[in-house]
Design a protein around this nucleic acid. Structure first.
Lengths: 209, 209
DNA sequence: GCCGTGATGTCAGTTCGTGACATCACCATA
DNA sequence: TATGGTGATGTCACGAACTGACATCACGGC
């Protein structure tokens, strides 16, 4: 038989998420995580650069975003490309909604983890910007569009996490990206009388896709 | 005479920036910083929460942003308010351009510091979003506008730092925010025919305000 | 049956960051 | 002038985060 139980990495991820949930991030030591995963502390650091990284490693997202951006229809405006890419990426979250929510709860409770999350998001933004430049956008426009996309994603994701009605992430994305287009119009449209996410969600304004 | 040399905090900031510049962030120990500032390591931690924070404490920015947002003319579109606020904030950087550049060089060389920088920027974004909500915007629009504003600021700031011609930050901000307006404006006249930063910077396109 | 490889264990050490307590110039006030 | 409180700093001890170096030994190829 094999010398060690298989999937040490998976066990570490699971143990870490559990312990961070149970007793908080700071109150959890790497030694504890390792013990629960039945490996040594040193092994933890062979799989993850530090105590935070264990929550941020599974990330198919960058690939999905880059691919969707590269393969979007040619004549689309930058923000349309972004909309397409983010919509393509939504299932990555929807498929693991349970896990994602638990993870996010932990992150929300610890500034250090939020810091790391922002770094990951910024990294994603760079990937997106690269992909946009591949499409022929100049560097500044690409960086800007990617930044806007990430800002919109952040808001939509947050709304999705907190949504008591569990509407799909794609829907929150659509509404948020739509709201982006009204930021330049004077006051009246962006007042509270036109909520971004109307009560009746079953008839979203079709963005023409 | 006094028991200790005055301005321990200032000496620590100076020593830290010097050492981080000279030998890198990771290669510098807090003990070294403290020694150069002629205090003990413990005193360092009385002034700064951790080794990174010493680079991020001076921040009049939040106040300026919040104030400028609150006092902007009433009927402005969200993005115009942001434009106003960021423009008001520009002098905070221009006035210490030398220091800001040195600091930024250190940050650019160390992911851990970039992480902290992103966190500070996000915090600033929240402040801005709060101020926008004070103006009557709904939470989602406010968060979105603030996020986009921060994204634009990030790009403009980066361009300013790298600008060999040393154009004022305010100018980069104007151009970047202009590009943002084009990207987010509903009609699809947002093509490449409007370059973000034209060769001749002395005749910026007037945004009609 | 031998050998290289890779994942893990073991151990020692450095640095970060914190709690507890000591010191003593300075200041207010009697 | 004497007294006592305050606040910034020093001193010490310590746990926990990370890292480098070397040991182990199942497995897979040859």
């Amino acid at each position: 038989m094999s010398r060690w139980k298989p999937d040490a990495r998976g066990r570490l991820e699971k143990a870490a998420l559990e312990l961070y949930s149970e007793k908080g991030f700071e109150a959890t030591t790497v030694a504890e995580i390792a013990a629960r995963a039945e490996v040594t502390e040193r092994t933890f650091y062979r799989h993850f650069a530090d105590k935070r990284e264990v929550l941020f490693q599974r990330n198919a997202l960058a690939d999905v975003l880059a691919h969707a951006t590269a393969t979007a229809a040619a004549p689309l405006a930058p923000l349309e490309v972004i909309t397409h890419a983010l919509t393509e990426a939504a299932p990555v979250f929807e498929e693991r909604a349970e896990l994602v929510r638990q993870r996010q709860a932990v992150i929300a409770a610890h500034p250090e983890l939020q810091e790391r999350e922002l770094a990951k998001l910024a990294c994603l933004g760079s990937t997106l910007a690269d992909a946009l430049r591949e499409r022929g956008l100049d560097a500044t426009t690409a960086a800007l569009a990617a930044g806007i996309g990430m800002a919109a994603f952040k808001v939509a994701f947050e709304r999705w996490i907190d949504d008591p009605d569990q509407h799909p992430l794609a829907q929150h994305l659509r509404h948020t990206l739509d709201a982006t287009r009204h930021l330049t119009t004077a006051d009246d449209a962006s007042r509270t009388d036109v909520p971004v996410l109307p009560r009746a969600l079953d008839t979203p304004p079709s963005p023409g896709g």
